[in-house]
């Protein structure tokens, strides 16, 4: 019992530490720069300059890429890979969220940098014609998180669809009594690059309803409840890739038996 309590305490401490540890991470707002590299489809580079540090980062690996007309919120960790195919050190993992702040569009030439040849991201779903392996039981209550851009409820392609597809495969096999979908929003303001950023409280409800609607379509007949919470706290779920801000912007699907 003592051992279990110690383990729980350790886990809690580790979780809290991991969730709140932002050491080594970067977070800033910038107007994106498109470097026109050409290594085939989807091979252009996205760069963003951190005004406070004066550093330019390669943010191309974000699952949701920038729009050259709008500022982006950049969140990421400097990559261990020192290669610079886009002409700047890379953040990886990295997230970029489009903000409603207009930018002057800026494109620079490749200048000899090759860019990256496109490869399918790790989180991509198979066509429907490919049978999903049935996850083994026994099945018990389980939570599936899904993550979003800043202040948005839009399912991120080759990220959220993969998370949901995995969840649906499990849910179809496990047949829970109901699904409780809780939307979270990071509504506590934080100062980033001189801007006070906070998600709208409504984003929490929008996320819950978006996921609920998608799950109604994917698992017809499943009973679904929606809830929402503001002032979201970070988690250390692996699919947030160790980015605490990403983990705050989520919806959770709790399968209840």
């Amino acid at each position: 019992m003592k051992r279990l309590a110690l383990l729980v305490a350790l886990c809690t401490a580790t979780t809290a530490q991991a969730a709140q540890d932002t050491a080594g991470l970067v977070r800033y707002v910038a107007c994106p720069v498109y470097r026109d590299t050409d290594a085939g489809r989807k091979s252009g580079c996205w760069l963003a300059d951190d005004r406070e540090t004066g550093k330019r980062w390669d943010v191309t690996e974000s699952p949701y890429k920038p729009d050259w007309n709008f500022a982006v919120l950049v969140e990421g960790r400097p990559s261990a890979n020192t290669a610079q195919p886009c002409g700047a050190p890379a953040l990886d993992p990295v997230r970029t969220s489009r903000l409603d702040i207009p930018c002057t569009r800026h494109m620079i030439p490749a200048e000899g940098f090759p860019g990256r040849r496109y490869t399918l991201p790790r989180r991509n779903i198979a066509p429907l014609s490919v049978a999903r392996p049935v996850p083994p039981g026994p099945y018990a209550e389980r939570v599936f998180p899904v993550y979003f851009e800043f202040d948005k409820d839009f399912l991120v392609y080759q990220y959220d669809d993969w998370l949901i597809d995995n969840a649906v495969t499990w849910i179809r096999a496990a047949k829970p009594k109901k699904l409780v979908v809780t939307g979270f929003a990071a509504t506590v303001p934080e100062k980033v690059s001189g801007l006070e950023l906070a998600e709208r409280p409504e984003a929490a409800q929008e996320r819950a309803e978006t996921i609920a609607e998608t799950m109604r379509r994917l698992v017809p007949g499943l009973k679904i409840e929606t809830k929402w919470e503001v002032a979201a706290k970070p988690t250390d779920e692996p699919d947030a890739d160790g980015l605490p801000w990403q983990s705050q912007r989520r919806a959770e699907m709790r399968a209840v038996f």
Partner: peptide, 14 residues
């Protein structure tokens, strides 16, 4: 081909 509409950000309607 796939269960989602990536342009609308939802699963396909039924």
């Amino acid at each position: 081909g796939f269960p989602f509409d990536p342009k609308q950000g939802y699963a396909l309607p039924l």
